[in-house]
Amino acid sequence: TYYTVKSGDTANKIAAQYGVSVANLRSWNGISGDLIFVGQKLIVKKG
């Protein structure tokens, strides 16, 4: 599943929404920190 980042989103918020850990969200998308951008497409695997 892909999720498009919206204004006000955070890695924590997206992870919680899908029931996954922030560490997994980072791993699936090659993100090292919490910096995400509006319009960015993230791979999300439901927990």
Rank of each mutant, 00 (worst) to 15 (best):
T1L: 13
T1A: 11
T1Y: 13
Y2C: 13
Y2F: 11
Y2Q: 06
Y2S: 06
Y2K: 05
Y2E: 07
Y2D: 04
Y2M: 09
Y2I: 11
Y3H: 13
Y3A: 03
T4I: 15
T4H: 08
T4N: 06
T4S: 07
T4D: 05
T4K: 07
T4R: 07
V5C: 06
V5R: 00
V5T: 05
V5G: 03
V5K: 01
V5E: 01
K6T: 08
K6I: 09
K6V: 11
K6S: 07
K6A: 08
K6G: 06
K6N: 06
S7I: 14
S7F: 14
S7Y: 14
S7L: 14
S7G: 08
G8A: 05
G8V: 03
G8L: 05
G8N: 06
G8H: 06
G8F: 05
D9M: 02
D9N: 02
D9Q: 01
D9V: 02
D9Y: 01
D9S: 01
D9R: 00
T10V: 04
T10D: 08
T10M: 03
T10S: 08
A11P: 15
A11H: 07
A11N: 04
N12L: 15
N12C: 15
N12P: 11
N12R: 14
K13N: 10
K13R: 10
K13E: 10
K13P: 01
K13T: 14
K13G: 13
I14H: 00
I14M: 01
I14S: 00
A15C: 07
A15L: 03
A15K: 01
A15Y: 03
A15H: 02
A15I: 03
A15S: 07
A15T: 02
A15M: 03
A16G: 08
A16C: 12
A16D: 11
A16V: 10
A16P: 02
A16L: 12
Q17V: 11
Q17A: 13
Q17E: 12
Q17S: 10
Q17N: 09
Y18S: 05
Y18L: 12
Y18F: 15
Y18Q: 06
G19P: 00
G19W: 05
G19T: 05
G19A: 08
G19K: 09
G19Q: 09
G19L: 07
G19E: 08
V20C: 10
V20L: 10
V20K: 00
V20A: 04
V20H: 01
V20P: 00
S21T: 13
S21R: 05
S21G: 05
S21P: 08
S21A: 07
V22H: 03
V22A: 07
V22T: 07
V22C: 07
A23H: 10
A23D: 13
A23Q: 12
A23T: 10
A23L: 08
A23G: 09
A23F: 07
A23Y: 07
A23P: 06
A23V: 10
A23C: 11
N24Q: 15
N24K: 10
N24H: 10
N24M: 14
N24G: 06
N24C: 15
N24I: 11
L25Y: 00
L25M: 04
L25N: 00
L25T: 00
L25A: 00
R26H: 08
R26W: 09
R26F: 14
R26E: 15
R26G: 06
R26Q: 11
R26A: 10
R26M: 15
R26S: 08
R26N: 08
R26L: 15
S27M: 14
S27L: 15
S27E: 15
S27D: 14
S27G: 08
W28C: 04
W28I: 04
W28D: 03
W28N: 02
W28Q: 03
W28S: 02
W28G: 01
W28F: 04
N29P: 01
N29D: 01
N29L: 03
N29A: 02
N29S: 03
N29V: 01
N29H: 01
N29M: 03
N29Y: 02
G30R: 09
G30N: 15
G30C: 12
G30Y: 08
G30K: 11
G30S: 11
I31H: 04
I31L: 15
I31P: 04
I31K: 03
S32H: 13
S32G: 08
S32A: 12
S32C: 12
S32I: 15
S32D: 14
S32Y: 11
S32K: 14
S32E: 15
G33H: 08
G33D: 12
G33I: 10
G33V: 09
G33A: 09
G33W: 06
G33E: 10
G33Q: 08
D34K: 07
D34T: 08
D34S: 09
D34L: 08
D34C: 10
D34Y: 08
L35W: 10
L35E: 15
L35Y: 12
L35A: 13
L35G: 11
I36L: 14
I36G: 02
I36F: 09
I36Y: 05
I36V: 11
I36H: 02
I36S: 02
I36W: 06
I36N: 02
F37M: 09
F37I: 11
F37L: 09
F37A: 09
F37C: 10
F37G: 06
V38T: 08
V38M: 07
V38N: 05
V38D: 06
V38Q: 07
G39D: 05
G39Y: 04
G39K: 03
G39S: 04
G39E: 02
G39W: 06
Q40E: 06
Q40Y: 04
Q40T: 07
Q40L: 07
Q40S: 07
K41N: 09
K41T: 12
K41A: 08
K41R: 14
K41G: 05
K41F: 07
K41Q: 12
K41M: 12
K41E: 10
L42Y: 01
L42H: 00
L42M: 06
L42K: 01
L42R: 00
L42G: 01
L42S: 01
L42I: 09
L42Q: 00
I43A: 05
I43P: 00
I43R: 08
I43M: 10
I43G: 02
I43S: 04
I43T: 06
V44L: 08
V44A: 02
V44F: 05
V44M: 05
K45A: 13
K45L: 12
K45T: 11
K45E: 10
K45V: 11
K45W: 13
K45Y: 15
K45R: 13
K46A: 13
K46W: 15
K46D: 11
K46G: 12
K46V: 14
K46T: 12
K46F: 14
G47I: 13
G47W: 12
G47K: 10
G47C: 12
G47E: 13
G47V: 13
G47H: 12
G47T: 12
G47P: 15
